[in-house]
Design a protein around this nucleic acid. Structure first.
Lengths: 95, 95
DNA sequence: TTGACAGGCAAGTGCTCGCTTGCATAACGT
DNA sequence: ACGTTATGCAAGCGAGCACTTGCCTGTCAA
């Protein structure tokens, strides 16, 4: 069962936010692609297992969806859970 | 120094999100008011010190601003840091 | 079939976080 | 002045989290 708090917990970690940045820049990357580009472009030295667990967390929150193809697993960002999150407090406050 | 990650960390805890709900419903409450209304309306049995620390976290993130008046300290919600947070990934992905 | 490649599973570790506990400070009423 | 009310500060504890380590499964090319 997926709850709202999972989205916030997934966004709490800076590495996971950078992963979402990467998938925003180039959608549908594999695990190894993400590892390589995080190291080069963002200067993060996270291991493969660490990033794999981060992707699991993001997938559990519904922010990342995956597609298997042979021995490759492609990761796609899904921004659907993002919008209603903040609107919760913006409705009455803004305008 | 206030960083972007503080906002996400502040939103990661369900109790702090409920506090923001309460301040959205009635802005400018004191610490004891928030404690009482969290207990009655939301069924949360958090102690005074716990909520005080949560308010410190929210204030450090810029989501809550305070105003001293005598022995009372009023807490006001500030939704300004909220909007640019999610827009970061919604730009390219949605629409 | 053998080896290399892409990814998964699970136990253990160190650190952070939420919460408690206990005492301290400051403002107000009487 | 005294007690009460509203809040602050700081050390300590237990649970959760990010990360590592080690091994295992499945896929493809030669």
């Amino acid at each position: 069962m997926r709850v709202v708090g999972d989205v916030f917990k997934a966004l709490a970690d800076p590495t996971r936010r950078t992963i979402l940045d990467e998938l925003t820049d180039r959608d549908g990357q594999t695990l190894f692609e993400i590892c390589a580009r995080l190291a080069t472009k963002h200067g993060l030295g996270s291991s493969r297992q660490a990033i794999s667990q981060h992707l699991d967390t993001l997938e559990a929150a519904g922010l990342v969806e995956t597609r298997r193809e042979g021995r490759y697993k492609f990761h796609y960002i899904n921004t659907t859970p993002l919008e209603p999150i903040v609107q919760r407090w913006l409705r009455k406050g803004s305008r």
